[in-house]
Simulated assay, not measured.
Amino acid sequence: MTNEPHPDIVFGLHLVNEITTATQLLAVGLNQIIEPNWYASEPATSFTCMASGVERILKLTFGLSASHQGQPFPSAKQLQKLGHDLIALEGFVHPPLTAKARALGKGYVADLLADVGTDPYWPGLLATLDSWASASGRYRDLTILTGEKTHQDPPTALWDATERACLQDLGLWAAIVGPDNRAALVQARTRLALSILKWWHAIFRVWTHGLLGPARLARDCALTCRKPLPRAVPRCASQAPVDERIPLRPLLLPALRDQGGASRR
C-alpha cells in the first residue's frame, strides 16, 4: 500500500508553483521596462513576461473564485477556451470581485479595485499586453515574412500611445528631444509600472482579504514578499495607498526607490 498525498496538498503545491512562476515573470518584465536602456521597439522579453504573468494571475484568480463558490476549478479545456484574451479575462475577474468586495463590506479592497478601473494608463497597458499575448501580436513579424498581410497595428503602437500620454501628463514631452530624454522616459515608464503594480496589489488584496477562500491562502502560497518594500512606490494624486509589503512576489524596482512613502493596511 502506497501513501499518496492528499489531493488538497497536491493542489496547493501546484498552486504555489504557478503563482511563483506568474509573479517572477511579471517582476522580470516590470524591472526591464524601467531600465534606462530599454527600448520599446525591442519588447520581446518584457512584453512576453508581463503578458504571461498577468494572464496566469488572472486565470488563477478566476479559477479560485469559481472554487470558492463551490464550483470545480476550471478544466484544462475551459482554461484553453479562455485563450490569451487578457481584456476578456480582466472583464471576467475585475467587476465581479469589485461587486463582491462591496457586498462583503470589504471597502478597502473594493476601493483598490475601483482605483485600478480609473487609472488613466491601465487600459492602454492592458491593451498592449493583450495585443502581444495574441498570436497575431507575438508572431506578427513572422506572419508578415510568410507573405500574409496584417492590418493590425503592432503592440508597440499601443505602448507608444500610452507612454506618450503619460509623458504629456507629467509635463515631460518637451524633454524627449533634449539631453535628459532618457531620464524623462524612465520617469514616465516608472509611472506606467506603477499602474501595473496597482493592479497587482489590488489582486493581492483580493487574495489576502479572503475573497477567494481562506485569508491564509495568500500566505501559504507565498503571495507576498517577506521583506518590506523599501520606500518603493511613489505617491501621486490618483494613487490609492499601497502596502509596504510587495504584492505577490518577488519584485524590486530600483528606479522606484526613495520616491515616496507607503502605508500599510
Results as ranks from 00 to 15, higher is better:
Ala40Thr: 04
Cys225Asp: 14
Thr23Val: 03
Gly210His: 05
Ala101Ser: 10
Pro155Gly: 07
Leu217Glu: 02
Leu86Ala: 05
Thr20Arg: 09
Arg189Ser: 11
Asp153Gln: 11
Thr23Trp: 07
Arg205Tyr: 03
Ala114Pro: 00
Arg138Cys: 04
Gly91Arg: 11
Gln152Tyr: 06
Tyr121Cys: 03
Asn181His: 13
Leu126Gly: 02
Pro234Gly: 07
Glu55Phe: 03
Asn37Pro: 00
Thr2Phe: 12
His68Asp: 14
Leu125Glu: 00
Leu158Thr: 11
Ala161Arg: 14
Leu113Arg: 00
Ala27Met: 07
His209Asn: 13
Leu112Gly: 00
Gly117Thr: 01
Arg140Pro: 01
Trp132Tyr: 15
Leu15Glu: 11
Leu197Arg: 01
Ile144Asp: 06
Trp207Gly: 00
Gly107Phe: 02
Leu129Lys: 00
Gly178Lys: 09
Met50Asp: 01
Tyr39Phe: 07
Ile19Phe: 10
Arg102Thr: 01
Leu229Ser: 15
Leu211Phe: 04
Thr45Phe: 07
Ala44Val: 09
Ser195Asp: 01
Tyr39Asp: 14
Phe47Tyr: 12
Tyr108Asp: 15
Val28Cys: 09
Leu30Asp: 00
Asp220Phe: 11
Arg226Ile: 08
Leu229Gly: 14
Arg164His: 10
Ala232Leu: 08
Pro254Met: 07
Gly91Lys: 09
Ala218Glu: 11
Ala135Val: 09
Glu244His: 09
Gln32Ile: 13
Ile57Met: 15
Thr162Met: 12
Thr61Gln: 03
Thr45His: 08
Lys81Asn: 13
Pro214Leu: 12
Leu82Ile: 06
Ala27Thr: 13
Arg264Gln: 13
Trp207Ile: 02
Ser65Phe: 03
Ala51Ile: 09
Thr156Glu: 15
Arg231His: 09
Phe11Tyr: 11
Pro155Ile: 04
Thr150His: 06
Met1Tyr: 06
His84Trp: 05
Ser195Ala: 13
Gln78Met: 11
His94Arg: 12
Asp258Phe: 03
Pro120Leu: 10
Ala157Trp: 05
Ser131Leu: 03
Arg265Ser: 10
Glu35Ile: 01
Lys100Gln: 14
Thr2Pro: 14
Ile87Tyr: 00
Gln69Lys: 07
Ile196Pro: 00
Ala99Val: 07
Ser67Arg: 14
